[in-house]
């Protein structure tokens, strides 16, 4: 039901997303849609799929942000601007506001592993949970009239009928750059927990008090462009012999 688990869940299954590695290829977006349109619950419908106003339900979307260094009014003024590709899906929050606002009990957080799910047979499609989520992780499917969200591929991770290597969320399995990682963030010895500790993984919108399980690894510092680029200004400082004479002659013309 819509009360959150009374005690911290023994497992906190979630994703760790490496913003230093993501190249913004959107492969995870497509694989997520492909798996989840045929998996758990109602299909992820598209509206006007071949028309000019195409839109549809996605459980995972990639935004791209430009970050201007502090003190800069325009690009290049105070160091290099950066482009950061930013995958975003449900963060399976410990204090999930989307769960407690649900009037029907369709939204719930699992006590055993912390995954936040929607029981679509109970969902009335009021949309309040999408309003309560600060991350935009929930989208109403306009064809089915029920709320859709990332299930952490609950129908893959415990699925013993598929190869063990495939028992991870579809986005993680697909990512060609290895920017997405899946694991138990309650276990300090798990690979994902070690990664978060080593790289200083961050919470999104900590001020919203949601205590997200998913963590983001911030981009590493980058060599300044000026230190690595070939200088473009013409110079003949290294010329000798014939070329030095020619340089002098041409200079005098």
């Amino acid at each position: 039901m819509t009360s959150l688990p009374a005690v911290p869940t023994p497992k906190k299954l979630g994703l760790v997303i490496d913003l230093d590695v993501c190249v913004g290829c959107h492969a995870c977006v497509i694989s997520c849609k492909e798996w989840n349109t045929g998996g758990y619950g109602a299909a992820l419908s598209d509206q006007d799929p071949y028309g000019p106003d195409v839109s549809g339900t996605f459980l995972n979307r990639i935004h791209s942000f430009e970050v201007l260094p502090v003190g800069a009014e325009k690009i290049g003024e105070a160091g290099d601007a950066r482009i950061v590709h930013f995958p975003k899906s449900c963060l399976h929050c410990e204090d999930a506001p989307c769960v407690t606002v649900c009037p029907t009990g369709a939204s719930y957080k699992r006590g055993e592993d912390g995954i936040v799910l929607v029981d679509e047979d109970m969902c009335i499609g009021c949309g309040l949970c999408a309003w309560a989520c600060p991350y935009g992780a929930r989208e109403m499917d306009l064809a089915a009239g029920v709320m859709k969200k990332c299930t952490l591929c609950v129908d893959r991770i415990y699925n013993e009928t598929i190869d063990e290597i495939d028992r991870v969320p579809s986005c993680v399995r697909t990512c060609p750059a290895n920017a997405r990682h899946y694991g138990d963030l309650a276990d300090p010895q798990s690979d994902v927990s070690k990664m978060v500790a080593a790289r200083g993984g961050i919470d999104l919108m900590p001020e919203q008090g949601t205590k997200p399980v998913n963590k983001y690894l911030p981009p590493r510092p980058r060599t300044a462009l000026a230190d690595s680029a070939v200088p473009l200004a013409e110079t003949s400082a290294g010329a000798s012999g014939f070329f030095a004479w020619l340089d002098g002659v041409l200079e005098r013309i």
Binding site: S55, A130, E207
Partner: peptide, 28 residues
């Protein structure tokens, strides 16, 4: 704070996930 990238500088949307509107942009 939404992206956690404030430690680098000012964050501005460069490209949205899809060209057209979606449920979130229509609703919120």
């Amino acid at each position: 704070t939404a992206t956690g990238l404030g430690f680098i500088g000012r964050v501005r949307l460069f490209e949205r996930p899809h060209i057209n509107d979606n449920y979130l942009t229509r609703e919120m």
